[in-house]
Write a protein that binds this DNA or RNA. Structure first.
Lengths: 228, 228
DNA sequence: TTTCATTATATGGTATGCCAGAAACCACCG
DNA sequence: CGGTGGTTTCTGGCATACCATATAATGAAA
């Protein structure tokens, strides 16, 4: 049957200024190197409203949402400040990540199809053996996609949502996380084990491997990353 | 040295109308039986601003935060609606809860003091044996406190925070969750086992027990609670 | 009587102006 | 020269007016 229907696509839903401002602010904060010494952490409502070309009202609503999300702190009549996460808070985020992703792995062994699990190989095998000499940056991206993929395979939207929120916060310090070659190599080994556990539908093992893998990162950050 | 200084106490920090409105709205929504058929799910900005005695601006900022939190949905020029969680979403929340609380139990075995762990007994032993005939309601409260206590013992503020957020959503359907006597009885047995695992610093076991305990609740809700 | 087009109204979206408190600045006094 | 008190300015909080659109109401034509 020939498909001759109109390709209906959702109407160009021009979002409200509030939500667009929210997105723009979030992106801007994410791109900002807020952990550099002397970074400007203060935001000015009126200046922002000029830069974005909107009035203060939608801007303030966007800021209220960002405050709820924990990205900024609004001090009455003092200023609006980008929140710098402490090292302890970062570690807690990684801990929560470990809990959620390990649960996701367990779920994945129950609900994901063989094909879906097999798809994980493409995110790991590319960096097989010792081909990651100068590709640590690329690997870092693939690494993130690997973990996101496991979470997607769990079918649990909420885990994906919370995890995304955490990632927003951690993104800022990723530049400080040195993914040295050796760590990357060991990481790949871990990933392969995880895939194997998923393929054999070994939920217990998959859960444990993912948890331990992420807790390794936690320990690494605790040991080597300096923030405050 | 005689202490003759002024007893300085922090000045009555009157919160902003925005945050007070936020709290009031959140409480009001929580108290509302939103899962009853025919419940009014629509909110009216102007009506609310009259009821609260504030203008629409702080009210809208509070609503923006509630939207971020997922409690309401703002449909442009259509209305503001309290979000009714689907059964699938509730199940996901319980799943996340299981992941987080089991991680909390594991952490608790590492960081909590013996005294803190011993304190859990008071939340369980009260309902020992078969003394919970007509006290299912009380037990339900103690049950919640027990789980909150474990999370507190983990020392992880973020787990507590996320868990609280989930609880806000689930509170609305708790009236529908029939904690029948038998379930309560088995629940108490589980709790005692969990305490024992914590006391013996058996992180693996504590984690598993908490996870399985919460997943039992998940299965119970999946099987017996009707929402849609 | 039914249907459709037009108009009215309701509701959220946005802009703007004023207010109050906090910080910065400055002058005066010791 | 240093500190204290007052004044100015800067900044977020709030109220209000107006706008745009979705929905309801209305009435005319079939």
């Amino acid at each position: 049957m020939i498909k001759a229907q109109l390709e209906i696509q959702p109407i160009e839903e021009v979002q409200s200024l509030k939500s667009r401002t929210y997105e723009a602010l979030k992106a801007a904060i994410g791109a900002m190197k807020i952990y550099d010494a002397g970074a400007e952490l203060r935001l000015d409502e009126r200046a922002l409203s000029l830069q974005f070309g909107v009035s203060r009202t939608p801007l303030r609503e966007a800021l209220a949402q960002l405050e709820q999300e924990g990205l900024v702190r609004i001090a009455p009549r003092r200023g609006i400040f980008i929140v710098r996460k402490t090292k302890a808070e970062i570690l807690e985020m990684i801990t929560v990540w470990a809990a959620l992703e390990s649960m996701a792995a367990r779920l994945a062994t129950e609900v994901a199809s063989d094909e879906e699990i097999a798809g994980l190989h493409t995110l790991v095998d590319t960096f097989d053996s010792d081909a990651l000499e100068g590709h640590v940056g690329e690997y870092s991206d693939a690494n993130i996609r690997f973990h996101a993929a496991i979470i997607a395979l769990s079918g649990c939207k909420l885990i994906a949502e919370i995890t995304n929120g955490l990632f927003t916060h951690v993104r800022g310090i990723r530049q400080r996380t040195i993914f040295e070659k050796d760590r990357a190599r060991r990481s790949i080994v871990d990933h392969k084990e995880i895939i194997e556990a998923l393929e054999t539908r070994n939920g217990e093992r998959a859960e444990r491997l993912v948890r331990e893998h992420t807790l390794k990162l936690r320990q690494h950050v605790e040991q080597f990353v300096q923030l405050d």
